[in-house]
Design a protein around this nucleic acid. Structure first.
Lengths: 214, 214
DNA sequence: AATCGCCCAAATTTCGAAATTTTCTTGTAA
DNA sequence: TTACAAGAAAATTTCGAAATTTGGGCGATT
């Protein structure tokens, strides 16, 4: 028998699995089935899935249950463009309002990210560092918009970022040497533009970073 | 004893009550209490509240339950600015992609809205027409962004629009003659700019329409 | 062969109660 | 008086089962 698992852990586990493409896009998520893996009642799973639908990782329809979010070229394009909109606005506002602490935080986040990316680019394969990179990348982008002063923008960006990841991991792409070399340059470009408070350049850098997903 | 009420009706009723400031901002929403009004179990209420938290009308915290969204000058400002961002982008995209059907729909929505607003402005008091106006106003703004081609933008705007309403109804303001005269001109300005496909003018018109809430 | 209707199986929702956690109250000690 | 602790009350979460709804299969009718 599986040991009792805390509900927050169930939420976290399902969230990670959804963002790692461990469920096929559009796959049905039946509480009664998932119940077994976690040793809890089906209602607890239902509860967790309802909360995940708020983030957009799960689609819910009355009397139809839950499924992992659908994936399509159109959906990926839609999410990417929306992410560009939010990240540009968040960066723009941060450049206006952000002080030294913001700059320091952004520089620090980029330093960590850069360190990991360089190591991966050297080896040519993410491997073990994939999780580290994943966290660092997220930290960098959130740091960029962190001084925008708009809780709603940050929360919405947070949801969109999760959906973006969910859509992209299911996409097969070679995370080879070239990929990370390109990424490194793109993150650097965003950092430089942001610290220089150059809005137009920052807009362009954000777009350039994400345009491969369009 | 209260008669059995369908769950979708409970959702709808609570949604309307939340958007009509029938709950004080930050007020606790206890399933066990609301249960009585609807003649259903507390779990059904919990279910409905979880779904309303996705829209942002209700705040949920693990082990702490639900409450009506908080209201503050900062929150209203935040929501308003975010709404401006989304509506501008939606309108911009619609002006690019929208065809004759979009123009026709927008003109029609404005015509209906204008008709109601003129009547209210004549009398000087919304009264009975408040609900009609409410729907027509919503239709107009959604029509404006309807051709943007981004489901995510529309859904997010939908949530923000609901939150905006929720925040503003709790604000006391005189919906007098002057108010509606101003609103009429603002809606007209948005319509004209959109049909002229004048982005800068449309941006300005949207801002002017909402700036009183900043 | 195609369509409709009925019935069965599976899935979802709803329920009432038990278990857990939080919050409030009261009492005790510093 | 303040701070802390223990206990009681209230609220939230979880559970297992019953009730409802959906989806599919099968057979009859056109």
């Amino acid at each position: 028998m599986t040991t009792r698992i805390e509900t927050p852990d169930i939420y976290e586990d399902l969230r990670v699995r959804l963002m790692s493409a461990r469920f096929a896009p559009g796959e049905k998520l039946k509480p009664a089935e998932l119940q077994g893996h976690y040793g809890c009642s089906a209602n607890t799973i239902r509860d967790v899935l309802l909360r995940l639908s708020k983030v957009g990782l799960v689609e819910f329809e009355m009397q139809k249950g839950f499924r992992a979010s659908e994936s399509s070229p159109e959906a990926r394009r839609d999410i990417t463009l929306f992410r560009v909109l939010l990240e540009r606005e968040g960066a723009r506002l941060s450049m206006h309002k952000g002080g030294t602490e913001w700059e320091a935080g952004l520089a620090a986040a980029h330093h960590k990210l850069s360190h990991i990316e360089t190591r991966i680019a050297r080896v040519g394969d993410p491997g073990e560092d994939m999780r580290l990179w994943s966290n660092a990348e997220k930290e960098f982008h959130f740091s960029l918009i962190s001084a925008c002063g708009s809780p709603i923008l940050i929360e919405t960006y947070s949801n969109i970022y999760a959906q973006f990841r969910q859509q992209m991991v299911s996409q097969e792409r070679d995370f080879g040497e070239d990929y990370f070399r390109a990424i490194i340059a793109e993150h650097k470009a965003i950092l430089d533009a942001a610290l220089a408070r150059d809005e137009a350049r920052c807009d362009a850098a954000i777009y350039d970073h994400l345009k491969r997903n369009l």
